[in-house]
Design a protein around this nucleic acid. Structure first.
Lengths: 411, 411
DNA sequence: TTATTTTTCCCGACAGTCGAGATAATTAAA
DNA sequence: TTTAATTATCTCGACTGTCGGGAAAAATAA
């Protein structure tokens, strides 16, 4: 990576855009203070971005005190759009967000119960992406970036799904497929990546003690077990990844998991795992793909009523999670663990085990026990994280570098 | 982080210095090609560095072919020095390396068998650091950086030892202590951090397939269990860290470990763990601090001879390591695992278990089984890694940024 | 209407990179 | 021995970007 003055400008453009995302619409002076750039530099950069149509002056704000009132600058909402697609086991959700970060359109489509081949699934997604643009009257080039979230294992640095609960080991290259219907850049991430980012950002804002280097893990409990780890960087930026935590080995010769291996965390602590333990099901059979929530609720009620087999199943799940989180925490040094997903409704049954596990770590002995929090709205976390990341990435990779096709450069 | 032209120059200076470290002494043109900088920029930068005394023209090399022969440029050996200190359970080793990377002096000092308080230990280290400078006739300011390696857990971004096999939870701040005898920057890392870097760099050179994003883990087997993970970045750079792998929980209510927790990996797979399993020692007693190698050798011989209890102990250790490595690999996606340390002499007894563990991962099912290699010379890896890192850090943080006290700038 | 305060813009100084051409050092051939 | 060819390095002018300081603009209080 060599450094030229051109790249210098790109970095400072990106920095100004990042400031605008972090602070919301702000004045010249605020941006200068936040970024550390001189007033003159901010002026030149914002003027340039305004000429390109990236930024727009907002209507004047009621002046607070004497002196010339500030002129707020913000992202030009119609400059570009990003699509956020969330694939869950039951449905696919499509959201369109404008450059200012406001939700413009949203709809979802249920997935057929028994769909084993990716072909029709992809066809439907392609149709829906086209529909997303049409419904808002946008032409093909307006959507600049598509951020897809899913469960399962995603290849690093390539929008390819390597393993998923529904399609198993059948790899799917979303970029190749979606290139047929859009010119946008396509990205694919495990959804917990973004839950972790969203939680991380919020914690950073509320608690100044959480800064550079702190790690937060978000655990998603449900049909499957997901986990994202976010690391805070300087200036409120955050990087994250989603290891296949649910398929880390818990017990060497344990029960068969949906992934084809034995003894995964998910095989004990996923919904199907809990059910199997409760009903003492055969350990060499692949469990049902989806367990209805109602059935889990019934089981939980019985556990709370003191029924042994049900209570035992949840206890096993909790212990398994606690141990797995302890191992994760040993390896990565996590300062906080947030738990989310449909499974949080059974958290009273799981938490004792989770705490037992965490307390066994060396970290705990040294007084650095990770805090455990509950997050009820996973959907919101994922959407927030995904769109914020999408806009930030658009800013950094295309807008700051002037690589965006439809920049209207003036003079 | 704002970008100014000043910082631009610093980055490019650092880049040129990195090229020189990567390529060895090289000519103007080679550097320009490697770095991507224009010939003019390289010229201006190298001229500057030469005037500052950082670089020096090497004696002419036998010309290969027609044309003007190349003038090789290399680090000026006497420009600065770094000290590499390796703390092991038995001794402390001191090395002095000049700016060109050549070993200038080396000696070591055994540690007294029973030393529980850090005070005298630190006093001895301070004396030896002073001695290291004296013996080579250097004044205090010549040693610019001290890189200390140890076993145990080190605080991130601060030269503080948080836990060590010898001093337990007594925290030691090396920077504060060493400031009394030297003005140099003091850094502290777990030694496996550098083993991992050294292996990673070598693999990168030999196999072009290993590039950006690939991860290598180095497992050190001995009295304790250490592990370092290195990630390859662009341009041959490498980042690494050393999680407390040996104290990750293996079995929830397992045997007591030296660290005070129960069921750590080390409590089963460290030398003391193997010995305890073989002799069926009590699980609630802290094992001996150091097991003589001769005793382990005897045990291994008996295991190879087919004796059940000995064979069982090594098998347990192997399985434990395999499982722990499988978990690590799930969470971090490791492409290669190198095993080193005194324990490699028992690798024939451990390897089957290690492989059994790794084969159970989802990665293995997908054909991405981490390769297992053996590295016999751990001392060399650590020294190589430590000094290379020290010089690179000196280049980046002090030389490139012109922060070095004794730069002799010429108009 | 005037003074005050705050924001924004403009200009010159300085620093860094790049491309192209000039210069230097050596070998091969005449 | 001389000359041409080849290759490496250095120098110069053009361009771009940042920074500081000061001037201009816009709103409010007196």
């Amino acid at each position: 990576m060599i450094s030229s003055t051109e790249m210098l400008r790109h970095q400072n453009r990106a920095h100004v855009l990042a400031g605008l995302r972090e602070l919301g619409p702000s004045a010249h002076t605020t941006l200068s203070e936040w970024s550390g750039l001189s007033s003159a530099s901010v002026s030149s950069i914002t003027a340039e971005l305004e000429a390109e149509g990236v930024l727009a002056k907002l209507e004047h704000v009621a002046s607070s005190g004497r002196g010339r009132p500030r002129v707020l600058l913000g992202p030009n909402a119609t400059f570009a759009y990003v699509a956020a697609i969330r694939i869950t086991t039951e449905a696919v959700e499509y959201s369109l967000v404008n450059y200012a970060g406001t939700l413009v359109d949203r709809f979802h489509e249920a997935r057929p119960a028994k769909e084993k081949a990716p072909k029709h699934f992809l066809e439907r997604i392609k149709r829906c992406v086209a529909r997303l643009a049409e419904r808002s009257g946008l032409d093909g080039a307006s959507i600049q970036l598509v951020s897809i979230t899913t469960k399962g294992v995603v290849a690093p640095d390539s929008p390819t799904l390597i393993w998923s609960p529904v399609f198993g080991d059948k790899a799917i290259d979303f970029a190749a497929e979606l290139q047929e219907v859009t010119a946008a850049c396509v990205y694919l991430h495990n959804e917990t990546t973004f839950s972790a980012q969203a939680v991380s950002r919020r914690v950073h804002r509320q608690d100044a003690a959480f800064d550079n280097g702190h790690r937060i893990a978000v655990l998603s409990l449900g049909q499957s077990i997901g986990l994202g780890v976010a690391t805070l960087k300087s200036h409120g930026r955050v990087s994250s990844f989603a290891p296949p935590f649910g398929h880390m080995i818990d017990q060497p010769q344990g029960s068969l998991c949906r992934c084809g291996s034995n003894g995964c965390v998910e095989a004990t602590a996923g919904f199907h795992g809990i059910l199997r333990t409760a009903f003492d099901g055969p350990s060499d059979t692949v469990p049902a793909r989806i367990i209805p929530l109602a059935e889990m609720d019934k089981l939980a009620a019985r556990a709370r009523g003191g029924e042994h087999s049900a209570e035992y199943a949840f206890r096993c799940a909790g212990d398994c999670l606690g141990l797995a989180l302890a191992r994760l925490s040993s390896l990565l040094g996590v300062a906080q663990i947030s738990i989310t997903g449909h499974g949080v409704r059974y958290i009273d049954l799981l938490l004792p085990g989770i705490n037992r596990g965490l307390e066994q770590t060396m970290q705990a002995r040294q007084g650095r026990l990770p805090q455990v929090h509950i997050e009820h709205d996973e959907t919101h976390l994922v959407h927030e994280g995904s769109t914020r990341w999408a806009l930030a990435t658009l800013d950094e990779t295309r807008v700051a570098t002037r690589q965006l096709s439809h920049l209207q450069v003036v003079g």
